[in-house]
Nucleic acid binder design. Sequence first.
DNA 1: GCGTTGCGAAACTTTGACGTATCGAAATTG
DNA 2: CAATTTCGATACGTCAAAGTTTCGCAACGC
Lengths: 205, 205
Amino acid sequence: MTMQEMAQGAAAAARPAGRPRSEKAEKAIVEATLDLIAEGMGLAELSIEAIASRAGVGKTTIYRRWSNKEDLVVDALATLKAPPPPVAGVSVRDDLVTLLSAMQDEKHQSRTRCIINIAMSDADRYPRLMERFVKIAIEPRRKAVRDAVQRGVDSGELRPDVDVDVALATLSGAMLWYTKWGNDDLTDDLPTRIVDQILSGLTTR
Amino acid sequence: MTMQEMAQGAAAAARPAGRPRSEKAEKAIVEATLDLIAEGMGLAELSIEAIASRAGVGKTTIYRRWSNKEDLVVDALATLKAPPPPVAGVSVRDDLVTLLSAMQDEKHQSRTRCIINIAMSDADRYPRLMERFVKIAIEPRRKAVRDAVQRGVDSGELRPDVDVDVALATLSGAMLWYTKWGNDDLTDDLPTRIVDQILSGLTTR
DNA sequence: GCGTTGCGAAACTTTGACGTATCGAAATTG
DNA sequence: CAATTTCGATACGTCAAAGTTTCGCAACGC
């Protein structure tokens, strides 16, 4: 074995000779998949042929990489690097408003709308997909809100007996509710109204 | 026309002679449809043949009554008479706990699990179905919570500046969140914890 | 340049559900 | 009993999508 062969084996991990797989095609396939999901297509209706057509790619090129639809979707979703929702600053109230506003904005960005659609519609079926999906998409957002609330408890800004889990469910659930069944009147001040009302409570003081 | 013919015409609305349609078969079809939906089958995967098989019925018997899948599902869902969630009593807090507890219980009853599954998964596609579905399943529950909150505002138990819509989203959304992504630790006191925390707020007093 | 492998396009087979038709049996009216 | 209609079962043609194969061309290593 020559030194060149050794170096090649280590670096390229045994390039098998022949035309290398197109990185561009792979990208296009993943993009097309996410686009179709973002447009509201459920996993059941999502067809390989639609993906191939949208990506301008032959079906062969897809099947050479993924053996079935679920594998492809798993990988596609994995590329949605959970952007740690915009980090926050000083007051709990402002942090929460920032996080909820980000959630609201994401409903309009087609790329992250995937997350909502999949999570709401196809979560139960496709359990294998869900495991990974929760990890990459749901958990970071959950953690961001949870951390903000916990920070408030630690700093004394919030009551020490606050149930962080319930607070998380309340805040995120409210945005979820409006996203799904709101009357399209998702005004910009909605996150503010939600946060302020949750923080101050409903009862007369 | 004899009197007998008249009476018969009025009572049976012109029975056309021949074997009458089996009420039992009709029931079995609707039941099978709801069962399959409750088991997590989406409308896309739901097949007429699966319904016929489950109901122990020929496909003919289905197609004789409904011309397509959507019509059948609409009628099936319509049989889920929205049970006006258990009426409430005196304090807003108790009323809300009652309503949220009812929501929690319904997640375990397969018959009403249909509502959640359909609402979350197939709401966007099938708009014609949604119109009727919202009316019979979503709206009554929404109204019950909203009324309870409004009652509290009117009685002075809640602050007069409470945003009823936001309160509704907060309460219902929290339960929705737990139902969908909760850690299975849906303890019986969850509704109590949610209501109490929303009522009292998070900030130190 | 030559062998190898990937490419997109298209043809192909298979699968599963749709919706219709047909069958003998059963239920009902007259 | 005769006519009519529904019953469950099954077979049928259609269609959409899955998944496989083939083809001519392109890209890479040697």
